[in-house]
Amino acid sequence: MILLLLCLSACDGPRDCERIRDEVMREDCRFERASALFGADSRAFYAALEAIPSPESRDLVRLRLAIRDPGAAQGLCREVETASAQEKCRQVLGRPHLSTAPRAHDPHPPAGTPVPASPGPPR
């Protein structure tokens, strides 16, 4: 965690995550970068996602976000690229009540505001 925090404070963008040699820390770096943008800046989120070089790693970000915020799972899972991630998504999407839980990680919508399923790709 300390190493990750050091990395996050030193890195400027998703490309800097690619310099991290440890696989798990590199995936964590990509995730932290993307999740900071998720729900806040849709265009930047998708740019960060596209900058991740492999579909498995992009799906890892999507899955982690979907589990952290099941209300956004439908949109995120619609975009997964690998069969493994699709399988994992089913565990979230197969339980539709999960998407009705209060969203703990998105500070942006005021209370009572209908929440979109996903920011969706930028146009």
Partner: peptide, 12 residues
């Protein structure tokens, strides 16, 4: 370790 194997590791 590849990201794919990380996903597979996540198999419960």
């Amino acid at each position: 370790m590849k990201a794919l194997s990380l996903l597979l590791l996540a198999a419960c």
